[in-house]
Simulated scan of single mutants.
Amino acid sequence: MRFIQVWRFITLMLAAFSLSLSMTHLLELPQRMQFDQQLWIRVTVIENIYRLFGTVGAFLEIAAILTASILVFLVRKHGSTFYWTLGGAMLLAIAFVSWMIFIAPINAEFAKWLTTPIPSTWIQYRDQWEYAHAANALLKIIGLSFLVISILVEIPKKRAV
């Protein structure tokens, strides 16, 4: 197996692992939006069931972006493969930036709720947190799809015999 094939495999796996955490949020969204205040805050803030998403998830997301960025460089002379790879890497990076802009500040706010009263506007925080995670998952789905397409466009077509 050539180096570039191994690198593509690593990139795809890291992007898929990162997406798997985001898919959790997306799939839970309909049910979680029905939770009352007490249940939603207990599960999300107090019990912090997503604790490892911040550590393991951060590693996977940054690693996926880095490997995809290096892959862009490795395929820079591969025609349309380059553009699909660039698009995939950019979408993974945009997903991370969107997390920093829309989700990280809410996580910081949630940390305050452990020692201060829950604000009456808690539902606005919940909505931003839930819908930003859903948007993040969609960005990663498209990003991973672009990375897969970047490989598919390079597969030679069989010649008719």
Results as ranks from 00 to 15, higher is better:
Pro156Thr: 15
Ile101Cys: 07
Gln128Trp: 10
Lys158His: 14
Phe146Arg: 04
Ser22Tyr: 12
Pro117Met: 13
Phe59Tyr: 13
Leu71Trp: 07
Pro105Cys: 04
Gln5Cys: 06
Ala68Leu: 06
Leu14Trp: 09
Thr116Val: 10
Trp99Asp: 03
Met33Cys: 11
Phe110Asn: 02
Asp127Met: 07
Ile142Lys: 01
Leu152Arg: 14
Trp113Gln: 02
Thr116Asn: 11
Lys77Pro: 05
Tyr131His: 13
Thr24Cys: 04
Asn107Ala: 05
Met90Pro: 02
Leu27Gly: 11
Ile62Phe: 03
Pro30Tyr: 03
Ile62Leu: 08
Leu21Pro: 01
His133Asp: 14
Phe17His: 05
Val43Phe: 10
Trp40His: 08
Thr67Asp: 01
Tyr125Gly: 06
Ser98Tyr: 07
His78Gly: 12
Gln31Gly: 10
Leu144Ala: 14
Val153Gly: 11
Thr67Pro: 00
Pro30Cys: 04
Ser150Ala: 15
Lys158Gln: 15
Gln128Met: 08
Pro156Ile: 15
Thr44Asn: 12
Val56Arg: 00
Ser98Trp: 06
Ile70Glu: 00
Arg126Thr: 05
Met23Arg: 07
Thr116Cys: 09
Ala15Thr: 08
Trp129Cys: 02
Ala132Ile: 04
Ile151Met: 13
Leu139Glu: 11
Gly88Asn: 01
Thr85Ser: 08
Ala89Lys: 01
Leu52Tyr: 11
Trp99Lys: 03
Thr55Gly: 07
Tyr125Met: 08
Tyr83Arg: 03
Ser20Tyr: 06
Asn107Lys: 03
Phe96Asn: 09
Leu39Met: 12
Val153Glu: 07
Tyr50Val: 06
Leu139Ala: 09
His78Pro: 04
Ser22Val: 00
Thr11Lys: 03
Met13Asn: 08
Trp40Glu: 10
Asn48Cys: 04
Ser18Phe: 03
Ser98Pro: 00
Arg76Thr: 10
Arg32Gly: 00
Ile123His: 09
Phe35Asp: 13
Ile41Asn: 07
Leu29Lys: 01
Ile41Gly: 04
Glu28Val: 02
Ile49Phe: 02
Ala68Ile: 05
Ala104Asp: 11
Leu19Pro: 03
Gly87Cys: 02
Gly57Phe: 11
Pro119Leu: 02
Ile41Cys: 05
Pro105Ile: 01
Ala160Pro: 10
Arg76Ser: 10
Ala108Ser: 12
Thr115Pro: 00
Leu92Gln: 12
Phe96Glu: 10
Lys158Glu: 15
Leu139Lys: 02
Phe146Glu: 15
Asn136His: 15
Leu144Thr: 10
Gly79Met: 06
Ile106Glu: 04
Gln124Ile: 14
Arg51Cys: 06
Arg42Ser: 13
Ser145His: 12
Ile70Ser: 00
Lys157Gln: 15
Lys157Thr: 15
Asn48Pro: 04
Leu152Trp: 14
Gln5Glu: 09
Ala108Asn: 09
Asn136Lys: 04
Asp127Glu: 14
Gln124Ala: 13
Ile4Ser: 03
Phe35Asn: 09
Thr85Gln: 00
Leu21Met: 13
Val56Gly: 00
Leu114Pro: 04
Trp129Lys: 00
Phe9Ala: 13
Leu92Ala: 02
Arg2Cys: 08
Phe96Val: 11
Ile101Ala: 08
Lys158Gly: 14
Asn107Pro: 05
Thr11Cys: 00
Ala15Ile: 04
